[in-house]
Amino acid sequence: MPTFVAMPAIETFGLEKTYTVGFWRKRPRCALRPLNLAVEEGEVFGYLGPNGAGKTTTLKLLMGLMFPTAGSAKILGREVNDPQVKAQIGFLPEQPYFYDYLTARELLEYYAQLSGVEARARSRRVAAVLERVGLRDVAGVQLRKFSKGMLQRVGIAQAILHDPKVVFLDEPMSGLDPIGRREVRDLIESLKQEGKTVFFSTHILSDAEALCDRVAVLHQGELRGIGVIADLTSSVRGKVEVIWQGGVIPPAMHALSAECHLIGAMARAVVGENQLDAAVDALRRANLKLVSVTPVRASLEDYFVEKLSPAEVAAR
Protein backbone atom coordinates (compact mmCIF):
# COMPACT_ATOMS: atom_id res chain seq x y z
CA MET A 1 0.00 0.00 0.00
CA PRO A 2 1.41 3.34 -0.89
CA THR A 3 1.07 5.92 1.79
CA PHE A 4 -0.71 9.13 0.90
CA VAL A 5 0.67 12.37 2.13
CA ALA A 6 -1.58 15.40 2.19
CA MET A 7 -0.58 17.62 -0.73
CA PRO A 8 0.39 21.10 0.34
CA ALA A 9 -1.95 23.74 -1.03
CA ILE A 10 0.85 26.28 -1.25
CA GLU A 11 4.53 25.51 -1.43
CA THR A 12 7.53 27.73 -2.05
CA PHE A 13 11.03 26.59 -2.88
CA GLY A 14 13.76 29.07 -2.12
CA LEU A 15 11.54 31.90 -3.33
CA GLU A 16 13.56 35.08 -3.57
CA LYS A 17 12.93 38.63 -4.73
CA THR A 18 15.34 41.49 -5.09
CA TYR A 19 14.03 44.85 -6.29
CA THR A 20 16.25 47.32 -8.01
CA VAL A 21 15.76 50.82 -6.73
CA GLY A 22 17.08 54.17 -7.85
CA PHE A 23 16.82 55.72 -11.25
CA TRP A 24 20.37 56.57 -12.17
CA ARG A 25 22.31 54.38 -9.80
CA LYS A 26 20.47 51.12 -9.60
CA ARG A 27 20.88 49.39 -6.28
CA PRO A 28 19.48 46.02 -5.35
CA ARG A 29 17.09 45.83 -2.41
CA CYS A 30 16.40 42.39 -1.08
CA ALA A 31 12.71 42.13 -0.19
CA LEU A 32 12.47 38.38 0.21
CA ARG A 33 15.28 36.03 1.15
CA PRO A 34 15.00 32.42 0.08
CA LEU A 35 11.62 31.40 1.44
CA ASN A 36 10.63 27.79 1.99
CA LEU A 37 7.08 27.38 3.11
CA ALA A 38 4.34 24.77 2.88
CA VAL A 39 0.69 25.41 3.69
CA GLU A 40 -1.54 22.38 3.94
CA GLU A 41 -4.94 22.13 2.37
CA GLY A 42 -7.75 23.30 4.64
CA GLU A 43 -5.47 25.38 6.81
CA VAL A 44 -5.97 28.97 7.83
CA PHE A 45 -2.46 30.30 7.62
CA GLY A 46 -1.38 33.63 9.01
CA TYR A 47 1.48 35.45 7.37
CA LEU A 48 2.78 37.87 9.92
CA GLY A 49 5.32 40.59 9.82
CA PRO A 50 5.81 44.27 10.52
CA ASN A 51 5.51 46.85 7.76
CA GLY A 52 7.97 46.26 4.96
CA ALA A 53 8.60 42.66 5.96
CA GLY A 54 7.90 41.33 2.47
CA LYS A 55 4.37 39.99 2.86
CA THR A 56 2.90 41.74 -0.16
CA THR A 57 5.99 40.81 -2.16
CA THR A 58 5.40 37.15 -1.39
CA LEU A 59 1.75 37.36 -2.37
CA LYS A 60 2.53 39.10 -5.66
CA LEU A 61 5.01 36.39 -6.49
CA LEU A 62 2.44 33.72 -5.68
CA MET A 63 -0.11 35.47 -7.90
CA GLY A 64 2.33 35.54 -10.80
CA LEU A 65 2.21 39.33 -10.89
CA MET A 66 5.98 39.48 -10.54
CA PHE A 67 8.71 37.07 -11.44
CA PRO A 68 11.01 35.86 -8.66
CA THR A 69 14.72 36.58 -8.70
CA ALA A 70 15.26 32.94 -7.83
CA GLY A 71 13.30 29.93 -6.63
CA SER A 72 9.78 28.87 -7.47
CA ALA A 73 6.39 28.18 -5.96
CA LYS A 74 3.50 25.83 -6.45
CA ILE A 75 -0.17 26.17 -5.69
CA LEU A 76 -2.27 23.01 -5.52
CA GLY A 77 0.74 21.15 -6.88
CA ARG A 78 0.99 23.21 -10.07
CA GLU A 79 2.95 26.11 -11.48
CA VAL A 80 1.47 29.36 -10.18
CA ASN A 81 0.75 30.75 -13.67
CA ASP A 82 -1.17 27.70 -14.77
CA PRO A 83 -4.71 28.86 -15.67
CA GLN A 84 -6.06 25.77 -13.93
CA VAL A 85 -4.51 27.08 -10.73
CA LYS A 86 -5.79 30.58 -11.35
CA ALA A 87 -9.33 29.26 -11.66
CA GLN A 88 -9.11 27.84 -8.17
CA ILE A 89 -7.63 30.72 -6.25
CA GLY A 90 -8.98 34.02 -5.03
CA PHE A 91 -6.91 37.07 -4.24
CA LEU A 92 -7.57 40.22 -2.26
CA PRO A 93 -4.80 42.77 -2.86
CA GLU A 94 -3.90 45.23 -0.15
CA GLN A 95 -5.82 48.50 -0.41
CA PRO A 96 -7.82 47.23 -3.36
CA TYR A 97 -9.09 49.56 -6.04
CA PHE A 98 -11.62 48.66 -8.67
CA TYR A 99 -13.06 50.12 -11.85
CA ASP A 100 -15.04 52.92 -10.28
CA TYR A 101 -17.35 53.40 -13.23
CA LEU A 102 -18.92 50.02 -12.57
CA THR A 103 -21.50 49.10 -9.97
CA ALA A 104 -20.63 46.43 -7.45
CA ARG A 105 -22.82 43.97 -9.32
CA GLU A 106 -21.33 44.78 -12.72
CA LEU A 107 -17.83 44.42 -11.37
CA LEU A 108 -18.54 41.04 -9.88
CA GLU A 109 -20.31 39.89 -13.04
CA TYR A 110 -17.25 40.86 -15.03
CA TYR A 111 -14.92 39.04 -12.67
CA ALA A 112 -17.18 36.01 -12.74
CA GLN A 113 -16.86 35.93 -16.53
CA LEU A 114 -13.10 36.14 -16.30
CA SER A 115 -13.01 33.36 -13.72
CA GLY A 116 -15.03 31.15 -16.00
CA VAL A 117 -18.15 30.95 -13.86
CA GLU A 118 -20.87 29.47 -16.02
CA ALA A 119 -23.25 32.04 -17.47
CA ARG A 120 -26.26 30.37 -15.88
CA ALA A 121 -24.82 30.41 -12.38
CA ARG A 122 -23.35 33.89 -12.64
CA SER A 123 -26.03 36.23 -11.39
CA ARG A 124 -27.05 33.86 -8.60
CA ARG A 125 -23.44 33.58 -7.47
CA VAL A 126 -22.94 37.33 -7.58
CA ALA A 127 -26.09 37.95 -5.56
CA ALA A 128 -25.05 35.36 -2.98
CA VAL A 129 -21.59 36.77 -2.52
CA LEU A 130 -22.89 40.34 -2.25
CA GLU A 131 -25.22 39.14 0.47
CA ARG A 132 -22.40 37.37 2.21
CA VAL A 133 -20.22 40.48 2.48
CA GLY A 134 -23.20 42.67 3.36
CA LEU A 135 -23.34 44.75 0.18
CA ARG A 136 -26.72 43.59 -1.06
CA ASP A 137 -28.35 46.97 -0.65
CA VAL A 138 -25.68 48.87 -2.58
CA ALA A 139 -25.24 46.33 -5.37
CA GLY A 140 -26.42 48.84 -7.98
CA VAL A 141 -24.28 51.77 -6.82
CA GLN A 142 -21.21 52.85 -8.75
CA LEU A 143 -18.01 52.00 -6.93
CA ARG A 144 -16.80 55.59 -7.02
CA LYS A 145 -19.38 56.27 -4.33
CA PHE A 146 -18.10 53.51 -2.04
CA SER A 147 -16.28 54.12 1.23
CA LYS A 148 -12.95 52.50 1.96
CA GLY A 149 -14.55 49.81 4.10
CA MET A 150 -17.13 49.04 1.44
CA LEU A 151 -14.37 48.68 -1.16
CA GLN A 152 -12.59 46.26 1.14
CA ARG A 153 -15.78 44.21 1.23
CA VAL A 154 -16.02 44.30 -2.57
CA GLY A 155 -12.44 43.07 -2.58
CA ILE A 156 -13.32 40.15 -0.36
CA ALA A 157 -16.38 39.43 -2.45
CA GLN A 158 -14.37 39.19 -5.66
CA ALA A 159 -11.83 36.95 -3.95
CA ILE A 160 -14.41 34.33 -2.99
CA LEU A 161 -16.78 34.91 -5.90
CA HIS A 162 -15.85 31.86 -7.95
CA ASP A 163 -15.73 29.46 -5.00
CA PRO A 164 -11.94 29.09 -5.04
CA LYS A 165 -10.11 26.37 -3.16
CA VAL A 166 -7.36 28.64 -1.92
CA VAL A 167 -7.96 32.23 -0.85
CA PHE A 168 -5.14 34.75 -0.51
CA LEU A 169 -5.94 37.86 1.48
CA ASP A 170 -3.46 40.71 1.86
CA GLU A 171 -4.36 42.50 5.10
CA PRO A 172 -8.08 41.77 4.89
CA MET A 173 -8.95 43.69 8.05
CA SER A 174 -7.24 46.93 7.19
CA GLY A 175 -9.54 49.88 6.79
CA LEU A 176 -12.41 48.20 8.59
CA ASP A 177 -14.14 49.28 11.79
CA PRO A 178 -14.41 46.84 14.74
CA ILE A 179 -17.70 45.44 13.47
CA GLY A 180 -16.26 44.98 10.02
CA ARG A 181 -13.23 43.16 11.45
CA ARG A 182 -15.53 40.89 13.37
CA GLU A 183 -17.41 40.12 10.16
CA VAL A 184 -14.27 39.36 8.23
CA ARG A 185 -13.13 37.08 11.02
CA ASP A 186 -16.44 35.24 10.87
CA LEU A 187 -16.12 35.00 7.13
CA ILE A 188 -12.67 33.47 7.35
CA GLU A 189 -14.00 31.06 9.94
CA SER A 190 -16.78 30.04 7.62
CA LEU A 191 -14.34 29.59 4.73
CA LYS A 192 -12.44 27.26 6.98
CA GLN A 193 -15.63 25.36 7.72
CA GLU A 194 -16.10 24.94 3.98
CA GLY A 195 -12.69 23.32 3.83
CA LYS A 196 -10.92 26.14 2.00
CA THR A 197 -7.31 27.04 2.47
CA VAL A 198 -6.90 30.62 3.59
CA PHE A 199 -3.56 32.39 3.42
CA PHE A 200 -3.72 35.85 4.87
CA SER A 201 -1.17 38.45 5.74
CA THR A 202 -1.49 40.86 8.61
CA HIS A 203 0.55 42.77 11.10
CA ILE A 204 -2.28 42.76 13.60
CA LEU A 205 -1.53 39.92 15.92
CA SER A 206 -4.84 39.47 17.64
CA ASP A 207 -6.49 38.68 14.31
CA ALA A 208 -3.99 35.96 13.66
CA GLU A 209 -4.27 34.57 17.15
CA ALA A 210 -8.01 34.28 16.92
CA LEU A 211 -8.09 32.62 13.49
CA CYS A 212 -4.98 30.81 12.47
CA ASP A 213 -4.06 27.19 12.64
CA ARG A 214 -0.50 28.11 11.93
CA VAL A 215 1.41 31.29 11.36
CA ALA A 216 4.70 32.27 9.82
CA VAL A 217 6.57 35.29 11.06
CA LEU A 218 8.50 37.30 8.51
CA HIS A 219 10.91 40.09 9.23
CA GLN A 220 13.03 41.98 6.73
CA GLY A 221 12.30 39.38 4.12
CA GLU A 222 13.42 36.54 6.32
CA LEU A 223 11.32 33.78 7.83
CA ARG A 224 11.80 34.04 11.59
CA GLY A 225 9.47 31.33 12.81
CA ILE A 226 6.69 29.08 11.69
CA GLY A 227 4.32 26.85 13.59
CA VAL A 228 1.12 26.39 15.59
CA ILE A 229 0.40 29.49 17.65
CA ALA A 230 0.36 27.58 20.93
CA ASP A 231 3.82 26.21 20.17
CA LEU A 232 5.17 29.58 19.25
CA THR A 233 3.79 31.33 22.29
CA SER A 234 4.73 28.58 24.72
CA SER A 235 8.29 29.14 23.76
CA VAL A 236 7.90 32.43 25.49
CA ARG A 237 8.04 32.00 29.28
CA GLY A 238 4.65 32.33 31.09
CA LYS A 239 3.94 35.07 33.59
CA VAL A 240 1.32 35.65 36.26
CA GLU A 241 -0.44 38.78 37.36
CA VAL A 242 -0.96 39.17 41.11
CA ILE A 243 -3.38 41.73 42.56
CA TRP A 244 -3.85 42.48 46.29
CA GLN A 245 -5.64 44.90 48.57
CA GLY A 246 -3.96 47.53 50.76
CA GLY A 247 -1.99 50.34 49.23
CA VAL A 248 1.51 49.05 49.97
CA ILE A 249 4.07 47.11 48.04
CA PRO A 250 6.14 44.86 50.31
CA PRO A 251 9.87 45.23 49.67
CA ALA A 252 10.15 41.51 48.94
CA MET A 253 7.77 42.02 46.01
CA HIS A 254 10.04 44.64 44.46
CA ALA A 255 12.76 42.06 44.43
CA LEU A 256 10.55 39.56 42.61
CA SER A 257 9.00 41.78 39.99
CA ALA A 258 10.20 44.61 37.89
CA GLU A 259 6.63 45.49 37.11
CA CYS A 260 4.67 46.46 40.21
CA HIS A 261 2.64 49.52 41.04
CA LEU A 262 -0.26 50.87 43.06
CA ILE A 263 -3.76 51.21 41.66
CA GLY A 264 -5.67 53.28 44.22
CA ALA A 265 -6.27 51.03 47.22
CA MET A 266 -5.01 48.05 45.28
CA ALA A 267 -1.60 47.01 44.01
CA ARG A 268 -0.53 44.90 41.09
CA ALA A 269 2.60 42.98 40.13
CA VAL A 270 3.58 40.67 37.29
CA VAL A 271 5.93 37.86 38.23
CA GLY A 272 7.27 34.78 36.52
CA GLU A 273 5.25 31.59 36.96
CA ASN A 274 8.04 29.99 38.95
CA GLN A 275 8.06 32.86 41.42
CA LEU A 276 4.35 32.79 42.19
CA ASP A 277 4.81 30.92 45.47
CA ALA A 278 7.43 33.36 46.71
CA ALA A 279 5.18 36.30 45.81
CA VAL A 280 2.17 34.86 47.63
CA ASP A 281 4.37 34.19 50.65
CA ALA A 282 5.60 37.76 50.64
CA LEU A 283 2.01 39.09 50.67
CA ARG A 284 0.99 36.73 53.48
CA ARG A 285 3.94 37.78 55.60
CA ALA A 286 2.99 41.45 55.14
CA ASN A 287 -0.63 40.67 56.02
CA LEU A 288 -1.96 41.88 52.69
CA LYS A 289 -5.11 40.39 51.21
CA LEU A 290 -4.69 38.55 47.91
CA VAL A 291 -7.39 39.48 45.41
CA SER A 292 -6.53 37.54 42.25
CA VAL A 293 -3.87 35.53 40.46
CA THR A 294 -4.22 35.32 36.68
CA PRO A 295 -1.82 33.77 34.21
CA VAL A 296 -0.76 36.30 31.61
CA ARG A 297 -0.97 34.35 28.38
CA ALA A 298 2.08 34.80 26.26
CA SER A 299 0.92 36.55 23.10
CA LEU A 300 2.33 36.81 19.60
CA GLU A 301 3.29 40.26 20.64
CA ASP A 302 5.70 38.80 23.16
CA TYR A 303 6.86 36.47 20.47
CA PHE A 304 7.55 39.36 18.17
CA VAL A 305 9.40 41.26 20.85
CA GLU A 306 11.40 38.23 21.78
CA LYS A 307 12.16 37.07 18.24
CA LEU A 308 13.10 40.37 16.78
CA SER A 309 16.37 41.36 18.31
CA PRO A 310 16.22 44.26 20.82
CA ALA A 311 18.11 46.46 18.40
CA GLU A 312 15.57 45.80 15.69
CA VAL A 313 12.69 46.55 18.03
CA ALA A 314 14.33 49.75 19.19
CA ALA A 315 15.00 50.76 15.61
CA ARG A 316 11.34 50.48 14.74
Binding site: L61, G64, F67, P68, A73, V80, N81
Partner: peptide, 8 residues
Protein backbone atom coordinates in the same frame (compact mmCIF):
# COMPACT_ATOMS: atom_id res chain seq x y z
CA UNK B 1 7.55 30.99 -12.82
CA UNK B 2 9.33 32.56 -15.75
CA UNK B 3 7.48 34.10 -18.71
CA UNK B 4 6.51 31.22 -20.97
CA UNK B 5 9.12 30.46 -23.62
CA UNK B 6 6.51 29.17 -26.01
CA UNK B 7 4.42 32.33 -25.80
CA UNK B 8 7.55 34.41 -26.31
Amino acid sequence: MRPSRRTT
